[in-house]
Simulated assay, not measured.
Amino acid sequence: MIEPRRIVVVGYHAAELIDIACVTSALVMANWLRRSALYDPTVATPGGRPIVCGSGLTLQAESALERVTGPVDTVLVSGGIGHVQAAADPVLVAHVRRLARDARRVASVCTGAGILAASGVLDGRRAATHWFHADDLAASYPQVCFDPAPIYIRDGNLATSAGVTSALDLTLSFIEEDGGADLARSVARHMVTYLQRPGNQAQMSVFTSAPSAAGDVVRRVVDRITADPGGDLTTANLAAVAGVSERHLTRLFLQDLGETPGRFVRRARVEAAAHLLVTTALTVERIAVRCGFGSAESLRQAFTTRYGVAPSHYRRTQSATGGATTPGRGSGVDPLAVQLAR
């Protein structure tokens, strides 16, 4: 039998519990659904001591970081409000560097990228992190290109993700890589989450749930649409991107998603606009342009058709401050919730 993959999750004082639990829970769920151990996850902390997470809850460690010997399959550093102190701990950073040297895969969640940066692992590389902390990390580690936009980045054997629940998206990508797409989708369904968000989907634009498309062609095209809803998304252009004919692309979309590429694009654009209405102070005119509508009136018509209310009404009722929000600080209400406000 194949030995389970050793996954070492590095924790420390004031780490974010969700960063850790999203990873370990998904891996254990994969084992359960597979009915065999694909993974052997371990939470390792300095000295093997319990840690008080940023939420105030205490988490018991399973291993002392100093005693973990390689090679391991994956070493993943969690984020949290204690990341600055952790990155300044030379012992912790040295052990992360030691384990990363021989690991098949090196990863971080949220501000855990700062600890990887302190170890030198990310030098000259592009890394994802939580949008709120990206500027501070970039100032502290100028040798790393921190990108606040995508929910995760895979670069060779390095994988870095954005904040908090994006840890689950990253872990699902690991499960798909290691155990196949069917296993990843089963884990996502059991954890009642998206099936699954593509890594290049923007942190500030998590408006469209990724489809359960089985085909690589449809998945690749959907990734393109959700990454840039304001781009040239005609069926002809999308077919060229996919390397198939327009007729074949339409057939694949109907087979996998039950709708044509054009209808999917329109839905994605309306959902993108709904997200921007409650998370930014952009004018409706600017949102229309950003989301691929020719005018504010075109957006209004499409929005009203889908949700039954005008964009201005949606912003007024669903935004935490009636539209005067800053990026990422909106109500967090799912666009579909507008139907409940009618």
Rank of each mutant, 00 (worst) to 15 (best):
L195Q: 12
D232P: 04
L249P: 03
A202R: 15
A127G: 00
Q318V: 10
F132L: 11
A310S: 13
E177W: 04
A324F: 14
A162G: 14
V23K: 02
R197S: 09
T234H: 05
Q196D: 11
S55H: 07
V164F: 08
A310C: 04
A272V: 03
I20C: 08
R263E: 07
L252P: 00
G54T: 13
Q196I: 04
H190N: 13
Y12L: 05
L57S: 12
A296K: 09
T234E: 02
G180S: 07
A100H: 05
G294C: 04
A184C: 01
P327A: 13
L336C: 06
L27P: 06
P4K: 01
L57W: 12
A273K: 04
I153G: 06
H313L: 01
A236D: 04
T45Q: 07
V96Y: 00
V187E: 01
P211T: 07
L195E: 11
N157L: 09
T279R: 11
D73H: 15
G54N: 14
R125Y: 04
L57M: 15
D216W: 12
A26W: 04
I287N: 00
R247A: 14
T45Y: 13
L276R: 06
G262Y: 00
R34C: 10
S140L: 12
N31M: 09
C22W: 04
V218I: 14
R197C: 05
A100L: 00
P335Y: 03
A21N: 12
A188K: 11
R342L: 11
N200H: 04
R220I: 01
G262Q: 05
V187T: 14
A86K: 07
P335G: 01
L276E: 12
G330D: 08
F132D: 08
A213F: 01
F264W: 15
G294T: 10
L276H: 11
A88S: 02
N237D: 08
D178W: 15
L340F: 15
V9C: 00
P142L: 06
L33C: 10
H130D: 14
G112N: 10
V222K: 00
T305D: 08
T226W: 05
G179N: 09
G199P: 09
Q201R: 07
D40F: 10
L57H: 12
V72Y: 04
V96R: 10
V91I: 10
L172F: 09
V289M: 05
E16G: 03
H95R: 15
R5C: 08
V222S: 00
R34Q: 15
G258R: 11
A181E: 13
I151H: 08
S298W: 06
